[in-house]
Computed example of a mutant assay.
Amino acid sequence: MAAAEAEYAYELEQVSFAYVPETPILDEVTFRIASGSWVSIVGPNGCGKSTLAKLLGGLLAVNSGSITVEGRELTRESVWDIRPRIGMVFQNPDNQFIGATVEEDIAFGLEGRCLAREEMRERVQRYAEKLGISHLLSKHPSELSGGQKQRVALASILAMEPGIVIFDEASSMLDEKARGELLQIWQEMRKSGDYTLISITHDAEEIMASDRAIVLRGGAIAADRAPAELFEDEELLQACRLIAPYRVRLQQELRKRGMDGEAILRGRHTRRW
């Protein structure tokens, strides 16, 4: 599976949306996401992040403006052709479980696509192995840990081989170890070049691992920059209730004291007496 040939996975032009006409959630949002990239969408609660994720996933239709996915405009007519290219992983994996076992759950979406049984079995085995859950295939979802459940949810999505995967706060309910493991999987997906990744998140490490951060405030784009640049903007971090990763904060503190924080952390600093 190769990355989409289209230059952009998404092109949004003046996208607006409101559940209630008098209360807009998103107001003329415009941006592009390059195919094969990893973009974090961040911002304070209520800024429209999850609504944007649903619009990108074709679960909601824009009130005005346009969304183009891999060169094709997303409309009520085209959504059925475009949606198979998009996978979504949500905050609570329990909401995505359908089958009585892990194997059945991964196979469920494939059955809906009417794949041959042999191909279904091959995909289930392949993606279970990729995500390190082959030993869990006969387990009931209730027997799994939070991290295992999220791996199963991701395997269910990847088995359908989408080119775009959207993570809506997918790591927020996990402990630190499980978050780290999931982040490593995302980094491997990014390196493969097979996917465009979009993560709706508050997690600093997740943001730092991505290529780009789009900041929403009040339904509009407040910033669009490299993660390292975002974490240098203290005012924006406070507004979004974000805390920079420990390594970044340490570098900043060392820099304030006139030292080369990056060199010190890399072990290259030579002390001068």
Results as ranks from 00 to 15, higher is better:
208 M>I: 09
144 L>F: 10
221 I>Q: 00
227 P>V: 06
172 S>L: 07
164 I>L: 01
234 E>S: 09
254 L>Q: 07
98 I>P: 04
262 E>F: 14
44 P>I: 05
136 L>Q: 07
164 I>C: 02
270 T>N: 13
91 Q>P: 01
41 I>L: 05
174 L>M: 15
207 I>M: 09
253 E>M: 13
72 R>N: 05
70 E>T: 09
198 I>M: 05
155 A>F: 06
196 T>C: 08
56 L>K: 01
271 R>P: 05
35 S>A: 14
170 A>I: 10
81 D>K: 15
128 A>T: 10
86 I>W: 01
175 D>F: 11
43 G>C: 05
185 I>N: 03
125 Q>N: 12
210 S>W: 14
80 W>R: 14
142 S>M: 08
256 K>Q: 15
191 K>R: 15
134 S>P: 10
121 R>N: 10
220 A>C: 07
76 R>I: 13
51 T>W: 02
155 A>V: 12
6 A>V: 04
142 S>I: 08
207 I>F: 02
84 P>T: 06
162 P>V: 04
26 L>E: 00
40 S>W: 06
259 M>Y: 14
80 W>L: 10
266 R>W: 14
172 S>Y: 04
166 I>T: 02
47 C>L: 10
273 W>N: 09
105 D>Y: 00
78 S>Q: 13
157 I>A: 11
253 E>R: 13
208 M>K: 07
82 I>G: 09
22 E>M: 13
138 S>K: 15
244 A>E: 02
267 G>V: 13
264 I>T: 14
123 R>I: 11
227 P>W: 09
111 E>D: 13
3 A>I: 06
25 I>P: 00
73 E>P: 11
73 E>C: 07
193 G>Q: 12
203 D>I: 08
164 I>S: 00
87 G>N: 09
91 Q>M: 05
131 L>H: 14
191 K>E: 14
264 I>G: 12
167 F>K: 03
153 A>F: 00
120 M>H: 09
242 L>Y: 14
106 I>C: 03
74 L>F: 07
190 R>D: 06
177 K>P: 06
163 G>R: 03
9 A>P: 01
37 S>I: 08
238 Q>F: 11
182 L>T: 03
113 R>S: 11
40 S>N: 08
117 R>D: 14
95 N>C: 08
19 Y>M: 11
253 E>P: 04
50 S>P: 05
185 I>G: 00
55 L>H: 06
144 L>M: 09
173 M>S: 10
90 F>T: 01
136 L>K: 01
112 G>A: 11
28 E>G: 03
125 Q>M: 08
157 I>E: 02
246 Y>R: 15
48 G>V: 07
165 V>T: 05
126 R>S: 12
113 R>M: 15
63 N>H: 05
215 V>Q: 02
185 I>M: 04
260 D>G: 11
120 M>V: 12
269 H>G: 05
259 M>S: 08
31 F>L: 04
104 E>D: 15
107 A>S: 10
11 E>D: 08
171 S>Y: 07
196 T>A: 03
67 I>C: 13
136 L>M: 12
231 F>R: 04
70 E>Q: 12
213 A>L: 09
48 G>S: 10
216 L>E: 00
62 V>T: 10
272 R>P: 04
182 L>K: 05
211 D>Q: 06
174 L>R: 02
2 A>T: 08
24 P>K: 11
132 G>F: 11
112 G>T: 12
233 D>L: 11
13 E>K: 14
269 H>A: 04
136 L>N: 03
33 I>N: 00
53 A>Q: 02
69 V>W: 02
124 V>S: 06
255 R>P: 06
